[in-house]
Amino acid sequence: MKKTDIILIVVLAVVALGSLGIMRLLQARAAESADVIEAEIVVEGELFKTVNLSEPQVIEIRTEKGYNFLKIENGQILMFEADCRDQICVNTVPAVQPGDTIVCLPHEVVVQIKGSSEGGLDAIAQ
């Protein structure tokens, strides 16, 4: 291994860890200020449903590509079954706080957690 190789690896690792840290920080900050936590479910580029994470339910998504089942329980949303080829979405940890995502690429299903504060604009204006 050459010296430049090591420098390159260290730089890439620092960039990766740094941006990971910044992302976590921003996510934690967004989570703190959010009163309502919702999951936005987008299927094939279009908004399928927005659900509140405090309302337990099972959501079924069926397209010609296949099916995905989502479950909301204990304030978290989980993809518990899908007939996609890679099963990456099913193995993804449950999404809890704003910024968390569950993605099923083969079926183009994206679940994104968003937080909003009840005060909305007014709270910021004060």
Binding site: I9, A13, S19, L20, M23, V42, G45, V103, L105
Partner: peptide
Amino acid sequence: AAFIIQNAFILGYLPMLMLAAI
């Protein structure tokens, strides 16, 4: 992936994937 699902947030997976790629 960002192009197919029309959502750029997925690039947020890059740092994690970069660590694995190293």
